[in-house]
Amino acid sequence: MTASRVCALSELEQDAALRVEVDGVAICVVRDSNDEVHAIGDVCTHGDISLAEGFVEGETIECWAHGSAFSLTTGKPLNLPAYEPVPVFAVTIDGDDVLIDPAVKKEI
């Protein structure tokens, strides 16, 4: 697979998340308070809840349903009830385009 354009960088609000789908994979794209763009699996590992509907703070996103927070850099849960990590994908910025290939996991 090759990286697909998922949105424009200018479409991503700071400290907010956007749900996209690439090749059938649901991905949560986040622009954090440091202006870095992250891409993680969109489904909370505790329940079938979209993380893009959650709350972004610093380098974490919190599931709105049960309160589990996940690291945007590692995908690891930072508190219960979730205990399984979500996948983290490599992000490429090309001009104003945000590109993600769901087959390429980010090296942690």
Results as ranks from 00 to 15, higher is better:
2 T>I: 04
2 T>Y: 04
4 S>V: 14
5 R>W: 00
7 C>N: 05
7 C>W: 02
8 A>Q: 15
8 A>K: 15
8 A>R: 15
9 L>H: 01
10 S>M: 10
11 E>L: 07
11 E>I: 09
12 L>G: 15
12 L>V: 13
13 E>W: 03
13 E>V: 09
15 D>H: 01
16 A>C: 12
17 A>T: 05
17 A>Y: 04
18 L>M: 15
20 V>E: 09
21 E>Q: 08
21 E>K: 11
21 E>H: 02
26 A>V: 02
27 I>L: 07
28 C>V: 03
29 V>T: 08
29 V>G: 07
30 V>C: 05
30 V>K: 09
31 R>N: 14
33 S>F: 09
33 S>C: 15
34 N>V: 09
34 N>I: 02
35 D>N: 12
35 D>K: 13
36 E>K: 13
37 V>F: 11
39 A>S: 09
41 G>F: 13
42 D>Y: 00
42 D>R: 02
43 V>G: 00
44 C>F: 01
44 C>H: 02
44 C>S: 11
45 T>Q: 09
46 H>Q: 10
47 G>N: 15
49 I>F: 03
49 I>P: 00
49 I>K: 04
51 L>Y: 02
53 E>D: 09
55 F>Q: 02
56 V>W: 00
56 V>H: 02
58 G>C: 05
59 E>M: 08
60 T>Q: 13
61 I>D: 11
64 W>R: 06
66 H>Y: 10
66 H>P: 05
67 G>D: 12
68 S>C: 06
69 A>M: 07
70 F>H: 08
70 F>Q: 03
71 S>C: 09
72 L>N: 03
73 T>V: 10
73 T>L: 06
73 T>Y: 03
74 T>I: 02
74 T>P: 11
75 G>M: 10
75 G>E: 14
76 K>D: 08
76 K>I: 01
77 P>L: 10
79 N>K: 15
80 L>S: 12
80 L>A: 14
81 P>D: 07
81 P>N: 05
83 Y>L: 06
83 Y>C: 05
85 P>E: 12
85 P>F: 14
85 P>W: 15
86 V>I: 10
86 V>T: 09
86 V>F: 04
86 V>G: 05
87 P>E: 08
87 P>T: 10
87 P>H: 07
89 F>W: 09
90 A>H: 12
91 V>D: 04
93 I>S: 05
94 D>W: 01
95 G>L: 08
97 D>H: 03
97 D>T: 00
98 V>N: 04
99 L>V: 09
102 P>K: 06
102 P>F: 01
105 K>S: 07
108 I>S: 07
108 I>D: 10
108 I>K: 08
